[in-house]
Design a binder for these strands. Sequence first.
DNA 1: TTTTATCTAGATCTAAAGATTGATAACAAA
DNA 2: TTTGTTATCAATCTTTAGATCTAGATAAAA
Lengths: 236, 236
Amino acid sequence: MRRNMDYNKKTKIILVDDNFDHLLGIRELLNLETNFEVIATATNANIAINLVKKYQPDIVLMDINMPEKDGLSAITEIEHLNLGVKIISLTGYDDPDLIFRAMKIGAKGYILKTMASAQLIYAIEEVMQGKIYLPAGLSSRFFEYFQKSFKDESVSNQNQENLLQYLTQREDEVLELLTQGVTYKGVARQLFISETTVKTHVNNIFQKLQVNDRTQAVLYALNNGFKNRKKLKMAI
Amino acid sequence: MRRNMDYNKKTKIILVDDNFDHLLGIRELLNLETNFEVIATATNANIAINLVKKYQPDIVLMDINMPEKDGLSAITEIEHLNLGVKIISLTGYDDPDLIFRAMKIGAKGYILKTMASAQLIYAIEEVMQGKIYLPAGLSSRFFEYFQKSFKDESVSNQNQENLLQYLTQREDEVLELLTQGVTYKGVARQLFISETTVKTHVNNIFQKLQVNDRTQAVLYALNNGFKNRKKLKMAI
DNA sequence: TTTTATCTAGATCTAAAGATTGATAACAAA
DNA sequence: TTTGTTATCAATCTTTAGATCTAGATAAAA
């Protein structure tokens, strides 16, 4: 830990950018810093992944806009290696969706190519200290996008009331099992009641949720905050 | 817009904090600023909501740790009023879960009571300009929490491969309809094929996903990144 | 050209799901 | 006490769902 405090060990950096000139520019810039060392460069994501496996750098500066394999999936692959390599994303645009996805899959920082070199150096230092670095402007971008995601959801759910509230405790338990793909027989076994009783409950659930079959009931439950899913979910 | 550029109009602020002394302290501090005006204070969330309705301030400084109705649900209620009121959260702790939830429900900023008064003033100015303000430390906290949420998920899914990849295009379309709760007959109608063909596809889907019925297939699809859900989802 | 994958579809069958009606018991609220 | 809610169960019936086997058409790959 605190490797950057160790005067004998420089921060090992790998650069990934499909633009070779840009690659050289950043390398020169970073090598001016006495405690940084660019140990390898790549113009292609697949090569980059192999270099990371081989050299296990401290930091990877990853351009996200690349042909063939894109930077985002490269980040995902590197993250799955679990080498503790810290990845900082680099792009030309401040597209909030890109920022969001990069941060989601584990990038420790995100900076624009247009930003001052001092900011790049600062970002690397911060990330090396275990922090996550987003410049104020990008951070603002990120949060707007983040909040919008949730707002859309709450707006669409706020119009019609949540019908789940009308379920009785027993109906709740039955629905819980339905959301696990259990059959009538299975529900009966697990709740120690007869199958016909289960059918009665299920029919009542259908009426209360205004649906016609178990699949729709399960979908309603999942889309309206039924227990079950405890983690963040996001489409690709 | 750009109200803070208008020299005739001060930024109207409402303070909410159950600690009366603290309330007075902040009010004095903010009133020293010539372009700020604390138009009301409240020691209770319900009163605060009524004050917001009545005076429609630019900014609400909301303490989150309050008895009775807590600050988070107060924020939610104010957001649902859709008055464009900008809310900045205020607490004693940098609990990442609290920060995450506050930002999720629409807080435009988050600062600690222990932070310097200059930072509070800066936060208000930034938020008044339409930005979202999180001090670097809290921002880092937020992102760690944010990334952890996604990491837990990807780790649990990474063990077994995603079986959805083996579905053919047609099977994909059928499953898509299943995840909307459509019956065999309905799928047949929508895809202009016979019901028996649908059954054939569905059986193939079951085998590929290693499930026994449509409910389980739908659950598998939703839990493994199938299209459909386009928004963030989070448990309560 | 043969093989393979995909989409299509029919026939047949069993099992499960779902609708409906009616009934008993417990319990709490009015 | 009556009324309402909830949970339980039976009987009956219709409709889907699902399994299995077979098979033709097409297009791409080997």
